[in-house]
Design a protein around this nucleic acid. Structure first.
Lengths: 223, 223
DNA sequence: AATTATTTTTAGGTATAACTAAATTATAGA
DNA sequence: TCTATAATTTAGTTATACCTAAAAATAATT
């Protein structure tokens, strides 16, 4: 059996590995809000359990066994988020923190019941894919909003779930996964995005836009 | 903030205090399946937080603050049991262990949502009273089944929830809270109870009967 | 009242997971 | 190439929560 902390490390390594390939101790420590020395200690422990591969100064990667556990925790987290949102009416900016605690604790049995009740969903309330029981992650195709240009139309695919203030901010513009919008103008010198959401205009700063991923981009010629 | 272990100690002291008044270190340790020395250590810690009163060799009692926390945890536990049973279809012999883990982790907000969805219930699936938000425990009137005599009819009020094998055994006789039955015969010398449940006979040993509490006892004259 | 038995406490030790501070290794600039 | 900076690791400390074994205090028995 793994400790909650160990599970969090595996989950974080998986997420960071997605983007960056190998994960450095420093990045991992920063992500988890612990000191690098603490991360080194946990990496050692996980290595001794054959859950990660690690060469000093070269970063960590998950082994097959480590990845399986990471995906199991992520599945717990995302199914819980959706269940809390849909079945219990927890607001979408609150489900992350709650799921963060519950994910280490629920049984496979309860998870299976939630999965069934929800109709075997493939996405959580923030648009992130829910891995299935066998650790298969549904493929998603999306790009950061920061790559959009003037006049492009698209649909919100996924937003970061870990900052509840950000989520409330997005909610105030109705920027949920599935919401369509059009880029009116991208201000020069890495300035903010002015967008149109169902007739309402909104100004989205670059830092915020980094946390929004969009799919189905269509070029639209302006009049 | 309290550790999970500390919460478990408070909960256990509350339950033991119900029956016995003051709770000895040894009894508490046995109940929690830890060594007496461990109980002493935790009692010290809880005393320093003003959650329990304790005089060496005289046993522990909860303070007002300690009782409030104990009742909050018990409320979490029993609401969770009922929610798992009713909303998620977890079998009644499984809800205890699951609730035992979740009770330390769910937020007041999620609890409030469950409470509402369940219609502000006052009893868990084993017939135990659910304290309200303010720590008021619904009064219950029940006596151990071991006090019944030949010919008496009554209704199951409450059963112990912590032994899943026992619960499966009771389930096989349909002995759920609310089930009516009649005592056919009590064997002499502390022997087993032969009872009639909706026309089906069952033999219930004394050790099992100790875990069943009954209400609404009516004398019935046999033909 | 003295001895025995039980209960409780103290003392010392284990494991986990965090920390700080110092030492080591790697990388990049002069 | 050598040095300065940055990243990583090691070493040692702290806190929680449990343990065992032995000492101390209380209760029960003769």
């Amino acid at each position: 059996m793994l400790s909650h902390a160990a599970e969090d490390y595996l989950k974080s390594i998986y997420k960071l590995q997605e983007k960056e390939g190998k994960v450095s101790t420093g990045i991992l420590a920063e992500y988890l809000d612990v000191k690098p020395a603490s991360a080194t200690g946990m990496i050692k422990k996980l290595k001794s359990m054959n859950l990660v591969k690690h060469e000093r100064y070269q970063g960590v990667t998950l082994t097959k066994a480590g990845k399986a556990i990471a995906l199991e925790i992520i599945r717990h987290h995302r199914l819980l988020e959706l269940y809390l949102y849909k079945a219990l009416g927890v607001p979408w900016d609150g489900v992350h923190d709650e799921a963060e605690k519950l994910e280490h604790v629920i049984s496979e049995e309860v998870e299976a019941r939630m999965d069934e009740i929800l109709g075997y969903p493939t996405e959580d309330p923030h648009g992130s894919p829910i891995p299935d029981k066998n650790g298969v992650v549904p493929e998603t195709f999306s790009i950061p909003m920061t790559e959009l240009q003037d006049g492009q139309s698209c649909v919100v695919a996924e937003v970061s779930d870990n900052d509840s203030a950000l989520l409330r901010h997005l909610g105030s513009f109705n920027l949920y996964p599935g919401t369509a919008f059009r880029v009116i103008e991208v201000a020069p010198f890495d300035g903010p995005f002015t967008i149109d959401i169902a007739g309402q205009q909104a100004v989205i700063g670059r830092e915020v836009a980094k946390n929004i991923y969009v799919g189905k981009v269509n070029e639209v010629v302006n009049v």
